[in-house]
Design a binder for these strands. Structure first.
Lengths: 229, 229
DNA sequence: GCTTACAAGATTGTCAACAATTACCTCCAC
DNA sequence: GTGGAGGTAATTGTTGACAATCTTGTAAGC
């Protein structure tokens, strides 16, 4: 998870191939995009062609993603996309609940007037999207809201952890968004979060965020999870 | 300087063929033990000798520890022990506060009578240690208490994160334990945590744990932290 | 005296070949 | 037909060498 910014020098070098991190990012995107299913084996030789990288870099990428919890590597048995069980998904979301609660609280303490305006704009757009039944748009706004709250909070450590946790259950979250009635339930929760942050009320903001994600956990539990492939 | 106890095998081989994970664990211990100071460069060739491992494995170990946040690797510039600033230490402890709060709450829900007894035993020993001024013993009991609470909670995801966060600021925590008056302040906090878990009161357990770690954050802030090298 | 250019050394990045392990399939005995 | 032994193919683990990059020390130019 090492941040890289190697195009900083004035040497206007065009190609900074940096194949190692490139391979990692490409593979992560592929997994998050669902091109490799949980439990699927990730054969190094195949990935070499897919990513146009050497085996060395493929291996490094797999190791990195293993550290992120996206893939699982067993000695002498290769790597496979990590299967996240229902119980694990709940655990992950529980941790996300408390950490995002912390983020919301800190956002409430540090929000600027401009940022408050931006939050209110998102609230308006969200309500419109739900009223118009545009759930895809609502989902996008949801992502944008959480990202903005994290930006306001400016809590790098919490950010990193939430990002890692989110990655581990993209698949589950996708299924979640298909649950009927979710937008109607989550809209008022989002509005409470926004209002609390705008009012600089850290305690209420944290409680609202936790309540929101707690209801996500409930929804997760309610899903009939189809067993392993 | 090899403080390894690998003389268990009768094969009188002097140099154990350090595998990848072995090299990683040894290096992590060395860093946590303080044998490499924050900011110190970790040259691969040197580590090869120190760990009796090939450069390949050393490199893998460095990458792993970078993912854990113990070292920092920059492209073409090698690795160095990560320097955790004061602000970062506070951030890390803030996240630890909420996650350990979650763990405490879950421990309160799942604690068995046997485990409750064990908790009470620790409470008694802690009080005795403080009264006798045996602060080193108290510190050990503190570690044991937090470990037991985590074991009771059985929350793998939260466990992993707390473990990672702890590792990132061992150095700071060591300085913390030297602060005068800490045991007298933290003892009642610990007792409240134990009581709440024993009584199956999740909310109080979480609040008590958070209050406890919040006071750690205060202590952190109060330390006159010597600036960057 | 100071800055810049350049060269030598040190360190890391990458690769392709080789060794070790595992998975799979065939064949044979019962 | 079933279970096991053995061999073959596929896959991963490891090594050493070489290339790219950065750092350091030195000397020339202003």
């Amino acid at each position: 998870m090492a941040s890289e910014h190697d195009t900083d020098r004035r040497t206007a070098r065009i190609s900074a191939p940096s194949t190692a991190s490139q391979a990692r990012d490409t593979l992560r995107d592929a997994i998050l995009r669902g091109e490799y299913l949980p439990g699927e084996r990730l054969v190094e030789a195949q990935l070499c062609e897919r990513l146009q990288a050497s085996r060395f870099n493929v291996r490094a990428a797999l190791q990195d993603l293993a550290a992120e919890g996206l893939v699982e590597v067993q000695r002498n048995r290769g790597a496979q996309v990590r299967k996240v069980s229902m119980a694990e998904a709940v655990e992950i979301t529980e941790v996300r609940m408390v950490v995002e609660g912390l983020i919301a609280a800190r956002a409430a303490e540090r929000v600027t007037p401009d940022q408050a305006t931006e939050l209110d704009e998102i609230a308006v757009l969200m309500r419109r999207a739900v009223e118009a039944g545009e759930y895809r748009r609502y989902s996008d706004l949801n992502v944008r809201l959480h990202a903005l709250v994290r930006e306001i909070a400016g809590h790098q450590t919490a950010d990193r952890i939430v990002e890692t946790l989110r990655g581990q259950l993209v698949r589950h979250q996708y299924m979640l968004s298909l649950l009927p009635g979710r937008p109607q339930m989550s809209l008022p929760q989002h509005e409470r979060i926004i209002a609390a942050i705008r009012d600089h009320d850290a305690k209420v903001a944290e409680a609202a965020m936790r309540e929101h994600i707690a209801s996500v956990i409930e929804a997760l539990r309610s899903m009939d999870y189809l067993g392993p492939a």
